[in-house]
Design a protein around this nucleic acid. Structure first.
Lengths: 219, 219
DNA sequence: GCTATTTGACGACGCTCGCCATCAGATTGT
DNA sequence: ACAATCTGATGGCGAGCGTCGTCAAATAGC
């Protein structure tokens, strides 16, 4: 009975921070370190020691927050994709539903703008691939989530668009792939192509698939 | 002057094989072993020891043929992609240029049929990504090569298709991405979707981008 | 038949990795 | 002031890696 209560919010304040605050701060430091290292030297070339040096912490606090580097990658991937997705949805909400072309353009522009952070782009489009079954599942799930978003959006924006369900599902995946590959190519060629060109080309693919006349596409 | 001539085709015959034949056979054995292991357990989980056991050879002959596992992956990737590309081109040549829709369908069917080899598909679409700058460059170069093929094909098959060059380049990349992502999704969902559905959806994307009326698309 | 080469089996090296233990100094609650 | 806790630094442990060397058995040229 000498232990007061240690299990729930165990730990005292230190350096003006509660135990939970310290944990959260350490977690953020490792997230930032992972974003930097995974996004530059790459995931497989990054070690726990490097992450600790980058974060300015020691490995004990790494293992307090993550089981291994894979868990850190997973967390960074989810956070980054959540952020990108939020930006796209925000852009969608700000556009007028009366003009589908403008809506698509706004969403695509927000998307490619988010990708101009090369670390995020590299992690979410290159580094996560082929790491492990767990990460693959996270990636695959995210693709399908995005595809579902595109699918319902297309069905509501273009009710006259009629294709069988199984084919529509593949089409949504294909659209994701088209935009993804453009983004990847953009990243691998050091953002040489101006962003509006990317947006216009992606909009054309989208319009072509949903059967919109080319004139309805922006520009 | 005691050495006869040893540098060019040095080595004698052994087991009924010349030195060059042995080297080629060993190389093939390692290529097959790599195809099997990279395509099942994955590239990063594969070690030189595993490759040797799978090939039924010892490491000395591995290093005679490849500098490291990365070089083996590179060779396998190039060979596999060459094979896929050859199948697609063969299908294109066998189809009638008078019916662009049928040509596209034949090419896509050959492509997805080749991808039914899951080891090849996994290596070329998952394992090669994010390995190293060298492999990334090989991947990127192959994508651009394929995009160039699509671009010239589109320009010749549909001369009335008019888009600016910079946008057309992105569109070709996007088309590759659309098909790639469909293929990847197919692989990751254990080939659940029937192949014709994949072909039809991909054809629709292609037709949509080059401005073909939906009726001209197959089916 | 004798010598040189090739082959497979096996072990050892140097290195780096993830992970864990220790220990002195800093900070906190009483 | 003092005991308890937290922190950073350091080093070690076992495992896995690529790579190299050794050695007996198999094969080929003379």
């Amino acid at each position: 009975m000498t232990t007061r209560r240690r299990d729930d919010d165990s730990g005292r304040t230190y350096g003006g921070e509660s135990a939970a605050e310290r944990l959260a701060r350490q977690r953020r430091q490792f997230m930032d370190a992972g974003l930097e290292l995974f996004g530059t030297v790459g995931y497989r070339a990054t070690t726990v020691r490097m992450l600790c040096k980058q974060a300015g912490l020691i490995d004990r606090y790494f293992y307090k927050n993550f089981t291994d580097t894979e868990a850190l990658l997973d967390a960074i991937y989810r956070e980054s994709m959540d952020d990108i997705q939020a930006r796209v949805i925000r852009a969608l909400g700000a556009a007028s539903p009366a003009e589908p072309g403008a809506m698509i353009e706004a969403a695509l522009d927000a998307f490619f703008q988010a990708l101009e952070n090369s670390r995020v782009a590299r992690i979410c489009w290159l580094e996560v691939l082929g790491v492990s079954p767990r990460i693959d599942a996270a990636y695959h799930g995210r693709i399908q989530q995005f595809a579902g978003l595109i699918l319902t959006l297309s069905r509501t924006l273009f009710p006259r668009w009629q294709v069988p369900d199984d084919e529509a599902e593949v089409l949504a995946i294909a659209l994701i792939g088209a935009i993804s590959q453009s983004a990847m190519h953009w990243l691998l060629t050091d953002y040489r192509t101006p962003r509006p060109v990317l947006v216009r080309a992606s909009a054309r693919v989208l319009a072509g698939v949903v059967g919109l006349p080319p004139d309805a596409a922006p520009r």
